[in-house]
Amino acid sequence: MSGRVQTARENVFTGWRRVFGLIVWAGLSAVVLTGCDSSQSAARPSVSETASAQEMVRLLEASLPQGKTSGQRGEGVSTKPGTLPSAELVFQRGGRSAHVQVMLGRIPVPLPAEVSQCPDTAVHPYSRCTITTLPDGATLVQDQSPHQEKNPSGGKVLTARLIFDDGRQILVSQVADPQAKADSAVTALPLTLKQLTAVATSSTWEPVLNTVPTPPAGGSGGWQPTGKEISLVLEQLLPAGISHAQPGGTEGFGHLVVDDGHGKSLVAVNVQRWKPSDDGMAKLFAKGETLPDGTRLSIRKNPANRGDKGTIEWTVDTFRKDGIRIVVSALNAPAYALAPTRPDPALDIAELKKIALDPAWQRVTRR
């Protein structure tokens, strides 16, 4: 993280998408191909030793049900860092149109926990997601989320992710064609989630996966606490008489929805580790308070970044001498994309400060 100050809010929004990097509608350095009718792809294409962009597109077309395709483009297997074999096209069927994309890759092992997690409900409250372990041990994550969080009744993004224990992964996604007219085509997609999953789990991709270079081994996991660990500590530190529910999070981030009888409020904790001498942290806390034990402290009351209109966020940000940063925030809404349910967050600054400075956090940061 050196050289880049990433606040708790920024860390939340990069969460589950960070692992896949190019998850949905990445700008492909693509080869553009001519359109065709996928119903003509009767024979299953063979895969050369190193799949090309054209082969990726043909494989995707062969995996789809009958329909018309256009706007094909793809990326072949490459040793260039950040380049993943992929294909995308516009698929039309039954008067409905959508962009469909497949992306293949390998993740260093051990796998980050968020690889096989659903989108975090603190940021994606309208996500409808399931996780299934298949007979061969692979993990299947199926999700349906709004294309725009602030318009949950509008167009949807459907994704099917298949993750193998050795780091191989397949991501297939579908989103309404942005060129389609503003009618039922925006909300009605040509492929069901079941059909999209059939593309992701097709044996068609196995030869390509076998040609994707194996990345260097990942670290041993390190110190970063899980969302569950953070949420458990947060539960214990809540003021008496306040109810809580919906624990969640990902590595380094945990949250609860609390209710004091006057409306639901999201309370979130972000745990980070920095170099004690990091210049970014020095600038961030330059105007903050320094406590007797050397901990830096900053307090903010701002409109919630990416929150609904009227959503506010109160934050107590702390940076310890050992480089551990504990950020505790509360909203006047149950999630970042939801409308406010109350005038102010359920916890005040004094209560947030008490949580952030509690010694209990040492249990999840001493590793």
Rank of each mutant, 00 (worst) to 15 (best):
V57M: 07
P334R: 10
P85H: 03
P65W: 02
T318W: 08
P85L: 08
A122V: 09
K228D: 13
Q101K: 11
R9W: 09
K194A: 15
A346F: 08
D120L: 11
S127Y: 06
T159D: 10
G74E: 09
E235D: 04
D166Q: 08
I326A: 00
D293I: 14
D165M: 07
V212N: 09
D37I: 03
S153Q: 05
S203Q: 15
T318M: 04
G3P: 06
G288L: 09
T315Y: 04
G249R: 06
P292M: 11
I326T: 09
G227A: 09
G323F: 01
S86M: 08
S39P: 03
K301T: 07
G71M: 11
R366Y: 01
D143C: 05
H262L: 14
A30Y: 07
P119T: 07
D120G: 10
P190T: 06
R128Y: 04
L357D: 02
S127R: 11
P216D: 10
A62K: 10
V208I: 13
K150R: 15
W361I: 09
M281R: 02
S39F: 05
T341R: 03
D348I: 10
R106G: 08
R325A: 13
A286K: 14
T204F: 12
N270P: 05
T315E: 13
Q362P: 01
T211Y: 01
T14M: 11
R96V: 00
S298P: 00
V157D: 07
S145W: 10
A335I: 05
T290V: 14
F13V: 03
E10M: 15
L357Y: 05
L357H: 01
Q174T: 00
R58W: 00
D177Q: 03
I230G: 03
E10I: 15
C129G: 10
R168C: 15
G294Y: 07
L196I: 08
S184F: 00
D259I: 00
A26N: 13
R367M: 03
G263P: 13
L28S: 05
T187E: 02
P359S: 01
L193S: 14
A200G: 12
Y126M: 08
R273P: 03
T341H: 01
A87S: 14
L234S: 00
A335L: 07
E149D: 14
V90H: 00
R4Q: 08
V109D: 07
Q142I: 06
T311N: 15
S70N: 05
T69Q: 01
Q179K: 12
Q148N: 13
A180Q: 12
P343K: 07
V24I: 13
R306A: 14
Q148R: 12
P135M: 06
S173W: 00
H262N: 14
S127F: 04
L284I: 01
T34F: 07
G105T: 13
T214C: 12
D37V: 12
T83F: 13
D279W: 00
C36R: 11
V90Y: 06
T201G: 08
V12S: 09
L22Q: 15
D166P: 09
N210I: 14
V5R: 11
G221K: 06
D183W: 08
R18W: 05
V271Y: 03
L22S: 14
R9N: 14
D279H: 01
I163A: 01
K321A: 14
